[in-house]
Amino acid sequence: MQSVILNTATRLMVGLILIFAIYLLLRGHHEPGGGFAAALVAGTAFALFAITEGPDKVRRAVRLRPATIAMIGLGVAVAAGLPAVFMSRPFLTGIWWNVSTNLAVGTPLIFDIGVFLAVLGAILSILLALEED
């Protein structure tokens, strides 16, 4: 079933939903949000896109296999704990670097990005498997 209203709304909403997912990812260390919640929101955007356009267009939009995305995410999450080990601190202890006077980047953000990719890869894998049947 093709719905003009759903197709039009999808074109407008998918981009906004993905921007909101990035917002959730970036604010997650200090307030509610983070990698897991952001991946769930991004998965919702891809589910909406898959419903209207089909799984083939989702695969072309993502460009990587979902399992590859999940493995990259796991690698990034593990790598986020290594700077602390090299500084003789416990694994996954937060380490912060001052990029400028108002901006500090730390390993918790890197860990959240890894969680985001791992969860998004799992969601996409399940979603595309269900859509193709």
Rank of each mutant, 00 (worst) to 15 (best):
G34D: 11
G35V: 11
G35I: 08
A38T: 03
A38L: 05
A39T: 10
A39Q: 02
L40D: 11
V41C: 11
V41N: 05
A42Q: 08
G43K: 02
G43Y: 03
T44Q: 03
T44E: 01
T44L: 14
T44S: 08
T44P: 00
T44H: 00
A45W: 02
A45Y: 06
F46W: 14
A47M: 05
L48P: 02
F49R: 01
F49V: 00
A50Y: 02
A50F: 08
A50T: 15
I51D: 09
G54S: 06
D56G: 02
K57D: 12
V58C: 04
V58Q: 03
R60W: 01
A61D: 01
A61V: 03
V62C: 08
V62S: 01
V62A: 10
R63K: 14
L64G: 00
R65S: 15
R65L: 13
R65Y: 12
P66V: 06
A67M: 11
G73W: 03
L74E: 05
V76F: 01
A77W: 01
A77E: 07
V78P: 01
V78W: 11
V78R: 00
A79I: 07
A79D: 06
A80N: 11
G81V: 08
A84H: 03
M87H: 01
M87A: 14
S88Y: 11
R89K: 15
P90C: 07
P90V: 08
L92R: 09
G94Q: 13
I95P: 03
W96L: 13
W97K: 14
W97H: 14
W97Y: 15
N98H: 14
V99P: 01
V99I: 13
T101L: 09
N102Y: 10
N102F: 12
L103F: 15
L103A: 04
V105H: 12
G106N: 07
T107I: 04
T107C: 04
I110H: 05
I110M: 13
F111L: 14
F111A: 09
I113F: 12
I113D: 12
G114A: 10
V115N: 01
F116P: 05
A118E: 10
A118N: 10
V119Y: 09
G121F: 02
I123A: 10
L124I: 00
I126R: 05
I126G: 07
L128I: 10
L128A: 09
